[in-house]
Design a protein around this nucleic acid. Sequence first.
DNA 1: CTCACTGTTTGACAACTGTACAGCTGGTGT
DNA 2: ACACCAGCTGTACAGTTGTCAAACAGTGAG
Lengths: 230, 230
Amino acid sequence: MTPKPHAPKFHRATPTVRREALIEATLECLRKHGHDGVSARRIAAEAGVSAGLITHHFPSISALVAAAYETLAMRLLSSIQQHAIELDAGPRERLRRFFEASFAPALLEPGLFSTWLVFWSMIAHDAAVRAVQDRTYVAYRDALESLLGQLRASKGVPAFKLRPAGIALAALLDGLWIEASLNAEAFRPAEAVALCEDWVHALCYGALPSLLVQRPEGRARRAASSVGPE
Amino acid sequence: MTPKPHAPKFHRATPTVRREALIEATLECLRKHGHDGVSARRIAAEAGVSAGLITHHFPSISALVAAAYETLAMRLLSSIQQHAIELDAGPRERLRRFFEASFAPALLEPGLFSTWLVFWSMIAHDAAVRAVQDRTYVAYRDALESLLGQLRASKGVPAFKLRPAGIALAALLDGLWIEASLNAEAFRPAEAVALCEDWVHALCYGALPSLLVQRPEGRARRAASSVGPE
DNA sequence: CTCACTGTTTGACAACTGTACAGCTGGTGT
DNA sequence: ACACCAGCTGTACAGTTGTCAAACAGTGAG
């Protein structure tokens, strides 16, 4: 054997780069091993690095996972949003594209579900993870409410309460995503998209009673201060 | 101190009883500790029993968890169903009671969500848990489809495809339950019930196009034509 | 070239894990 | 009163785990 005279035993990296590499390795570990992937040694091995390095760059394993959570959640959301925003498309079409992106093959990969379960299960114990969850959930619902807001501003769409509408649509999307992740054969992605579109259709149709804003029609005649068109 | 002359060091039980006690202890452990509750020693301690007894009654820890999954899932479903079935009530009212039961305080307890996450996260690795998941999910959707079937048989309700309707309603329920479990302050249980009722309302109104059965001749309902902005 | 800085490794630590198994014991049938 | 044995215990085992102090070695500056 000819020993190489100059084989560096490790590579130095700037803290930022190393932290990002560790986060990436964490995501890969969670994707592949689920809960068992939350292991300093496993993540370090995935990153091609020693285990002790993790504690050197992150206060704890859970802090690393929390950082990975934030990275993945924001990445996915912006990916879906980017797919949804088509310049010359109406609100209805944008929502459809949002749904499509939500049930694209990359989103239905089993490893992604395993990863998400790890994040969710850490919420109860770890405050940092809980904080990430709160932030990303707000961002997700804001994205939906923005699209729904554009829809509401369209002609022929009855006024509806934005916040509960966002909640319901987010729940429908989440629920379908989970069902599809739990049992890939239960239904096809196109069906999920159609079911979401159905809900939007019903919303535009005014067929979701509890979401409609109360139009004080009866009182408006008595109270002359009403400015709405009659 | 007067030492009791005859303090039995352990209590004998018939296998069936002991197994059920272990399952109950498992559920309690998962409820309290989530993923960390999956531990032979912890479960044994909860049951007031030595750790070795678990391997004596169950081939492995995951088999015990799978049994606990089946027990809890069936218990919850039959509890909800029992609450939903009111003798002199129409299908619409029964569905409303089903929703109510789904968002009762007992169902929104944080420990229940932690427990469920453990079950779900084991699906990917353990075949027995996966089998339980498949079975219980079918039972759950069957229960919904049964109620929806009664609804469809009602007067004034348009024909709709039962299976995708069950899928959508199950997803909406699951999604709302998860959102509520993740963030108890996001919305009140009554809102969740209202959103589910809205969906049923839209279904009865024929406002969910992809669920409507294609009527070859004289489709009178206007829901098939888009009313929203396009 | 040498030095110092600092990212990285190493090894050790105590506390866990699931499972196996030899032996003890409670309570029942005789 | 006795014996049996199923149910149960306790220990042992080979693995894990996260964290940390100390030693190490790349790498750029002087």
